[in-house]
Simulated assay, not measured.
Amino acid sequence: MNDEQLLRYSRQIMLPQVDIEGQERLLSSSVLILGLGGLGCPAAQYLAAAGVGKMVLVDPDAVDTTNLQRQLLYCADDQGAAKVAAARVRLLAVNDSIQIETIHGRLEDEGLLEQVRKATVVLDCTDNFTSRFAINAACVRSSVPLVSGAAIRLNGQLTVYDRRQSDAPCYRCLYDEQSNENLSCSESGVLGPVVGVIGTMQALEAIKLITGFGKTLNGRLMIFDAMTMEWQTVRLQADPECPVCGQA
């Protein structure tokens, strides 16, 4: 690190849990963020500020008026622009020393697997089961840790799936692919700070995975209720019959 970087990141470098070694790990890491909506926006902002060396941003959508209530990387002037392009501009304004690659579209099959394999950590900030199952399968296959967040209405949830720990569960251990409960913000609504809380904590878990400090949420699911301001933690177990990780 040069003197400018030492000064920029000094407040987290002075933490013994991070220190110089942890900051160097951040600077040499690559994070794949799938989805630049309510979860991906705060997650990307905090990771950019923390000094993640490279981020790959993936989203097929353009900025819409209804996004502005909670997706704080965007402003009114961005309406109609690709989310990944607008997000890149804002994130480089936060930290112009990082690398940002954008993919305006959906990643599937080999394209998804290729990007996952290049990543240090993957953040699933999507909003549908189809994408989540595909991302999970690619992470299991590549042994890349996955930070998964979700939020709808006044509730959010967060966990880590890290199959580098042999007895850890994956997303498919919890959810059946036959599920059709694809709740969307457009149909069910969501409060902006709820996605902000979950997205910010996704960034925190990613930083912990990269630097190696603390205990991550691997094997635990945290559930947030904004109505009561209460958190619940549920222990997760791997399903030995899981079609994705059961034979791994």
Rank of each mutant, 00 (worst) to 15 (best):
M1E: 02
D3H: 08
L6H: 11
L7K: 15
R8S: 13
R8W: 12
Y9V: 11
S10L: 10
R11C: 01
I13W: 07
L15M: 15
Q17G: 01
E24D: 13
E24P: 14
R25L: 15
R25G: 07
L27M: 04
L27F: 05
S28K: 15
S28H: 09
L32K: 09
L34P: 00
L34R: 00
G35S: 12
G35M: 09
L36H: 01
L36T: 12
G37Y: 07
L39P: 02
A43Q: 05
A44G: 15
Y46L: 10
Y46P: 02
L47Q: 13
A49H: 02
A49F: 06
A50Q: 05
V56C: 10
A62T: 04
Q69L: 11
R70N: 01
Y74L: 04
Y74P: 00
D77W: 04
D78A: 00
D78R: 08
Q79L: 09
A81T: 09
A85G: 03
A87P: 10
R90F: 11
L91H: 07
L91P: 09
A93L: 14
N95S: 04
D96K: 13
I100V: 15
E101R: 13
E101A: 12
E101P: 03
I103G: 02
E108R: 10
E108D: 01
G111N: 12
L112F: 03
E114G: 02
Q115Y: 01
R117N: 15
D124E: 02
T126A: 08
D127L: 14
T130V: 00
T130P: 00
T130D: 07
R132D: 01
F133A: 05
F133G: 12
A134Y: 04
A137M: 00
C139I: 09
C139V: 01
R141T: 07
V144W: 14
L146W: 12
L146M: 13
A151K: 00
I152K: 08
N155G: 08
L158V: 08
L158R: 04
L158K: 13
T159P: 01
Y161F: 15
D162I: 08
R164T: 13
D167N: 07
P169A: 00
P169D: 03
Y171N: 03
R172K: 01
L174D: 08
Y175V: 06
E177A: 14
Q178W: 05
S179N: 06
N180W: 03
L183S: 06
S184Q: 07
S186F: 02
V190P: 12
L191P: 05
L191R: 05
P193V: 11
P193E: 01
V195G: 00
V195Y: 06
I198D: 01
Q202T: 00
E205Y: 02
A206D: 04
I210W: 14
I210N: 14
I210M: 15
K215I: 03
T216M: 12
T216I: 11
L217T: 03
N218R: 12
G219T: 02
G219H: 00
M222E: 00
I223T: 06
F224W: 13
A226H: 12
E230P: 04
W231K: 05
W231N: 05
Q232L: 13
R235V: 07
L236P: 08
D239A: 03
P240R: 08
P240W: 03
E241G: 01
G246W: 13
Q247R: 10
